[in-house]
Design a binder for these strands. Structure first.
Lengths: 350, 350
DNA sequence: TTGAAAGCGCTAACAA
DNA sequence: TTGTTAGCGCTTTCAA
């Protein structure tokens, strides 16, 4: 509250004690609001601390307590696309218990990852959050038993680990069900990446996500006794693929009144081609995307309905799971966080 | 290298020393590769450490050394748009000296910012990186003299502080000069936000950026004895504003053969309207954007030329400046990092 | 209610 | 070359 003028160097507890005319032990108790200190003394110590802009030394404290009130985050997400919201959610959750976050970027390099790990362990983090950038399970990370680990977004391949992931199968089903509820029956699907090799880079994204979303979409279609309109094609997550795939549908005279695009990029490409051909959205063809990317969906023309994977919520849940584990109640297995439909004008009911 | 099986709990140096049959001091020297230790002993100690999966305790070390090899980052960037690349660049730079990054999100709240500050100070960070989310100068942060601070992206209002920012004036000039070099002479400008009140939120962005980019653009135009085609209007950084502004230009019969859009969002909106009206890009009208956002520029139709503000480079430079300050060579004042033209098909020369 | 002393894990003088 | 000792800043018995 008070406008603290920061002095030249840090004051120690010993200096505060001296200034207040008490012993080290008493000063410690007074500042930590422990009992068995007279009100007068407590007041004097607090004043002395204020005067000297005393800041307790966290290193010394955790040397004694054995914990650091901090967690380590290792991410392989260069773009920050998943990492940022997850971190935001995690910080939200951890903030309550005064936790800090130590960030390390492994850039997808396993060796670098191990280096970062040692680094964080030497700093005695109370827990570890491993944030991946795709939904394909990643290898288990070998860590000491006494530090809990939670995997976020990219789950661990080891079912005994605790992982928090998004539910792309549900997302796929949700997209289709929404279109059906809008009165559409002839639903085309434009897939994302389908590279089965490991050669998927950032722009291509994860084939697992496209398969999961497809699976959910097919399930929902079948439950409604429907089949997708036209063939489902995969290539990339990009706008240009969205344009190309839409042209294919149109030029091959596929009869469709809605399109599920497996990403917002694809959806934008799709919309621009429909626009070119004078097809009304959503009247003639409704379009729905995935990921609800703020740069692409809300301000499209018309605004694009999209399925939000709730990455921030993943951060919340993961942080809560980590806190639980730190407090002796570890979770096991993969927990899926539900996605959310964000309806906009590209899928208005007929 | 070796496949370490992490044991139940952490081994201490004392245990390593015992296992190797040497004293604490010798074990310390051996592991820290200090001289005055026989090769045989050194070997034995290293083996013992390996066996026990010994991980040195950073707290204990920094209690002695006085520094932590870690820097604190306070950001107000919720989206991670600037924060992520800056962090990436900074980590690149710091990695060499084995630095960690402690991340705190202040969400633009001054009180929260002070809390985070105390937190980081109690952790004895060696330096502080303050990452803002707009180019408008931010208030100086009152910190102890002994911990160096560098402001990134949003510079400090105090000229004595060290700030690393992007050069939006240069960016504006660069856009115009590029269009001129493409043979365009009738250049329209669509501005971003111009809210003079403090009411600019995330989507609106900073009016300072739009003014700076305008200033640079006007300078470049004047140097070529040109005036902007039509009026320069400001409203938002959004696609819909790009569409609206372009329609205005067209409907008011402004004669233009190029458009500088102060953001890629605006540029995309502009392009879609030009497209609708059957105007060829770049043949009839060239379009250039700002920010080079990977989601918007490279895969547009045609791919959008844009000015990249090089945020990752800002992170590099900021980290270097911080390292310098930590090593006793503080920088002062605001250093501007140059932006970069990324040419794509939306501005091919005639 | 207060204070003296031990010790968290480690490094760095200094002594042997 | 090796070991002993003091102490980094703090908390925590335990005794006064």
């Amino acid at each position: 509250m008070a406008a603290v003028t920061h002095g030249a160097k840090k004051a120690t507890l010993a200096e505060v004690a001296a200034q207040a005319g008490v012993s080290l032990a008493t000063a410690s108790k007074a500042l930590n609001n422990q009992p068995h200190v007279s009100d007068a003394t407590r007041k004097r110590v607090h004043e002395a601390a204020e005067q000297l802009s005393y800041i307790p030394n966290a290193q010394a404290r955790s040397l004694i307590s054995g914990h650091t009130n901090s967690i380590g985050v290792i991410t392989s997400d260069l773009t920050g696309r998943f990492c940022t919201p997850i971190l935001l959610g995690a910080e939200d959750e951890l903030g309550v218990t005064s936790n800090t976050v130590l960030l390390c970027n492994a850039r997808g390099d396993a060796l670098l990852e191990r280096n970062h790990l040692s680094f964080l362990l030497s700093r005695n983090v109370d827990g570890l959050l491993i944030v991946g950038d795709e939904t394909t399970p990643r290898p288990h990370l070998d860590t000491p038993d006494h530090v809990p680990v939670v995997y976020a977004y990219a789950p661990s391949a080891d079912p005994n680990d605790c992982s928090i992931a998004c539910d792309n199968v549900e997302a796929g089903a949700m997209a289709v069900n929404h279109l059906i509820s809008c009165g559409k029956r002839k639903i085309a699907i434009i897939g994302g990446s389908d590279t089965t090799a490991g050669a998927h880079n950032l722009r291509l994204g994860s084939p697992k996500a496209s398969q999961d979303r497809l699976q959910g979409a097919m399930r929902a279609l079948h439950e409604a006794n429907l089949e997708p309109a036209g063939p489902v094609r995969f290539s990339q997550w990009s706008e240009s693929w969205g344009r190309a795939a839409t042209r294919l549908l149109l030029d091959q005279n596929v009869d469709f009144d809605a399109v599920v695009c497996q990403s917002d990029e694809i959806a934008r490409g799709c919309m621009s081609v429909l626009h070119d051909r004078g097809i009304d959205i959503p009247g003639q063809v409704a379009v729905i995307g995935h990921d609800n990317r703020s740069l692409l969906a809300p301000d499209a023309d018309p605004p694009l309905t999209s399925i939000d994977n709730c990455t921030e919520e993943i951060g919340h849940v993961a942080a809560r799971a980590l806190l639980d584990a730190i407090n002796g109640k570890p979770h096991h297995g993969t927990e899926y966080v539900s996605c959310r439909l964000v309806q906009r004008d590209s899928t208005l009911p007929n």
